[in-house]
């Protein structure tokens, strides 16, 4: 509490402190000289910078999306359609049941 009092007092001191706005002699000439000394801007560089920024953004999004995907727990209720050979999977599951005899296809029946 006492530190907050001191802090406010110091802020009051800073607020009361005048800030000079005086400008050095011929400062505008210095600025114009600096502007003339600047190399001309290459529009291709702006494109390259933009593309770099876009590439970094895409990389960041891909990293975040990958991270979310990897950290998500597997959903046991997820549909099985995603499995490419779901028919085989079904037969294998039924065949594993005790006492279940898979019916033979017509061509194999005696």
């Amino acid at each position: 509490m006492k530190l907050e009092g001191l802090r406010q007092k110091l802020i009051q001191v800073a607020r009361h402190q005048p800030v000079s706005d005086c400008v050095p002699y011929a400062f505008e000439q210095r600025v114009l000289h600096a502007l003339r000394a600047l190399p001309p801007r290459d529009p291709a560089l702006a494109w390259v910078a933009g593309l770099w920024r876009a590439a970094l953004c895409s990389l960041a999004i891909a990293t975040v999306a990958g991270g979310i995907h990897l950290t998500q727990p597997d959903d046991p209720t997820a549909p099985v359609e995603a499995v490419a050979d779901s028919d085989l999977l079904e037969v294998a599951t039924l065949g594993d049941l005790p006492g279940f005899e898979a019916p033979l296809p017509d061509t194999l029946r005696p």
Binding site: V19, S20, D21, V23, F27, E28, Q29, V31, L32
Partner: peptide, 22 residues
């Protein structure tokens, strides 16, 4: 007319100096 930028500099330089001195 890039030389006219000097006019803008003259108009705002004192405010910019006060800000920068903070």
């Amino acid at each position: 007319d890039a030389a006219l930028f000097e006019e803008l500099v003259r108009r705002y330089q004192s405010r910019l100096f006060a800000t920068a001195r903070r």
